[in-house]
Design a protein around this nucleic acid. Sequence first.
DNA 1: ATGAATGTGAGTATCCTGTTTATATTCTCG
DNA 2: CGAGAATATAAACAGGATACTCACATTCAT
Lengths: 207, 207
Amino acid sequence: MSTRIARPAARMRKQPRQARSIATVEAIIEAGARVLSELGWAGFSTNKVAEAAGVSIGSLYQYFPDKLALVEAIRRRHFDHVLSVISEAAADQKPLRQFARELVRGMIGAHSVHPTLHQVLLDEAPGDRGSRAAHASFQARYLERYAAAVAQYRRRRKDTETMARVLSSAIEGVIHNAARRNMLDAPELQKQLVELISAYLSGSRAT
Amino acid sequence: MSTRIARPAARMRKQPRQARSIATVEAIIEAGARVLSELGWAGFSTNKVAEAAGVSIGSLYQYFPDKLALVEAIRRRHFDHVLSVISEAAADQKPLRQFARELVRGMIGAHSVHPTLHQVLLDEAPGDRGSRAAHASFQARYLERYAAAVAQYRRRRKDTETMARVLSSAIEGVIHNAARRNMLDAPELQKQLVELISAYLSGSRAT
DNA sequence: ATGAATGTGAGTATCCTGTTTATATTCTCG
DNA sequence: CGAGAATATAAACAGGATACTCACATTCAT
């Protein structure tokens, strides 16, 4: 009951040193992604995340100075994942159809853990401090990969960037929609998405 | 006392009889659409809508029993608009490319007033109560039109429904993405979207 | 001019929010 | 072991936003 040792005011931003705390931080980020995906930004509260992580709210604030820092961590993790997926699919010089297949497979995989996380991250982001730079940087590299792929399978250099934008947003739209209906792993959907990509990039130009 | 959400309450509390009140109701719905599109569901509050409509909060509650009834009205208005756009584009037997062009033009038009309204309506809806039926009904008719179009330009009857889903969500993805960047009326984007639709529906099937 | 229709907006009650703090538990290492 | 550092807990706080009501003011139709 008695408080004998007066501790100096605890610092907020601690670095996890022991294995235990590292696991805690990981659990918080993971739970945060889940909450963000399931409840959206509107339902994303630090208390809810802590509870979902099976961790007290105090522990959360021991490692993340505020809500935005937590979102930032979630964003970084997810975006890194997605970027690596595109990189892998676009590596080497593969025939168009194979590229499309691997891209679809990878993108679906990246979204099946937290189906709507990507969309929430894009649409309802904080938008203010600090995240702008990271966000723009990701978008740039994201489009870059797509543009490279487009350039690889399309001769005309003219609308490469626009095509990359159209292609990426179309894919995202299909995947997001499928995620909302829990149809992410329907084989015929994957097949049709491959079909869409291939058709667009081969560009028949038929009337 | 527990909050009562038991009743769907989709109807209006009071029927506007005079021209003045009709204009008020219209202003509320219009402002609601604007707020919903610009601030998202998280920022959609009845007070904010009333203020944006240049109307007192009391007037709002004179015609809409609760927040959900207002969203319902907004949703109905927007969805009716979109449905009519698809109908018009798919009417008659037009060549594929012309259909694609008119569809793109119409969809972009339907989204350029309140760019992200559609997406917000789909993603961050009330969720459970009352709206489920209307929502499902819209989705059904929505897909129906797309399926009809797909069947019209594609011989194989097999994956018609899946193709309709893929096509519609791809178009929505592109438009939503463009709306977020204020690029809805970039001509090259429209052209590429037409290209995407045509390519997918002509279905070159090149390996 | 009178009653009905319409409009007002301060006020209410409630719920949540992010964050802090005092305290309890677990780990590291001499 | 055991002392102090690292880590974890959960109650509590302060502030704000929320949906919605109500007593009253204004404008309409007749």
